[in-house]
Structures are given as C-alpha cells and as structure tokens.
Amino acid sequence: MIGHDPLTTYKAAVIGAGSGGLTMATGLSNFGHDIVLIEGDKIGGDCTNVGCIPSKALLHAAEAGVDDPFAWVRARRDGLAADEDVEMETHDHIHLVRGWARLTKSENGAHVVCVSGPDGDVEVHAENVIVSTGSKPIEIPVEGLGPER
C-alpha cells in the first residue's frame, strides 16, 4: 500500500527498493510483519531497470531472432517494472513511501527515518532499519595491471 501511518512503529524500514530491498521487505512481510519500503527512484533498482533483466532479455532476444530486440527488451523491462510497482503499491504488509531517506535521532528508542518526497518530509518509525541502497564499483589499483585489462 502507498503511504504509512506516522504514529505506528513498524517492524522494519527498508531503504532502497532494488533487488536486495525488495527481497528483504517481501521476506519480512511473509512473516506477517508490517514493513515500510522507502524508494526515491524506480522500484526494482538497477537490476530491473538497467542491469540484469534488460541484459539477459537482450541475450534471449538475440538467440530467438527477434526483429527489433531493443524494442522487445524495453517492453519486457517496462512491463516487469510496472508489475513490481503495482505489487509494492498494493501489498497488504508493505507500506511504500516514495522519497529519499536520511536517518535521524529518536526520542523513544525506535529508529526514525526522515523521507523527503513528493508529499514533503515525512517521518517513519521502525524497530529496525535496513539500508539496501546498492553500491558503486571502485577501482582497485593492482601494480602492473592497466585499466584496459
């Protein structure tokens, strides 16, 4: 469901709705816990939108001889992304809050996450906070190994 109750302390707030965050939120919700899922960009993250799914679909389209593989891949990706959006927006135990999260101090022992989003700033209270915001590659310098290798 979209939104949350600002007076409720949830079992967990999951920051990031990429593959890791979706797995965590869904897994916890399967135990009957109410979870807040916070995402500032697209549901599914890089995997659904620009990485794993489109690249594997492109390989499949090439093997299958699809006439316009890029259009086919975009349609598949967009369909999956729309399905993931609907699933998170309508889930009984996952409360989707769109916006960018930052951790703040709490007064009562629960964790507080401030989310800046399209509806302004809102606070989410949770017993646990899971940060699943992805990563960025780093270059590890290896003597004798140039960037072209």
Rank of each mutant, 00 (worst) to 15 (best):
L7D: 07
T8Y: 01
K11T: 15
A12T: 01
A12M: 04
A13T: 03
I15R: 01
G16L: 02
G16M: 03
G18F: 08
S19R: 13
S19Q: 13
G20F: 07
G21V: 07
G21K: 06
T23Y: 10
G27F: 14
L28N: 06
L28A: 11
L28K: 10
L28S: 05
F31A: 09
F31S: 06
G32P: 08
G32L: 14
H33Y: 15
D34M: 05
I35D: 14
V36D: 09
L37F: 11
L37E: 06
I38G: 02
D41T: 11
D41Q: 13
I43R: 15
G44Q: 11
D46G: 14
C47E: 10
T48P: 00
G51Y: 10
I53M: 07
I53E: 02
I53P: 00
I53N: 02
I53Q: 04
S55I: 15
K56Y: 05
A57R: 06
L58P: 05
A61G: 07
D67Y: 10
D68I: 10
P69Y: 06
P69T: 03
F70T: 01
F70M: 09
W72T: 01
R76S: 12
R76M: 13
R77Y: 09
R77W: 11
R77H: 03
L80V: 13
A81F: 12
A81G: 09
A82S: 13
A82Y: 11
V86Q: 04
M88T: 04
M88C: 03
E89L: 05
E89K: 09
H91G: 01
H91L: 02
H93Y: 05
I94T: 09
R98E: 06
G99P: 07
L103M: 03
L103H: 00
L103K: 00
T104P: 01
T104H: 02
T104F: 01
T104G: 03
K105A: 09
K105V: 03
N108W: 04
N108R: 13
H111C: 05
V112P: 08
V112K: 09
C114V: 12
C114D: 13
V115F: 05
V115R: 06
S116W: 03
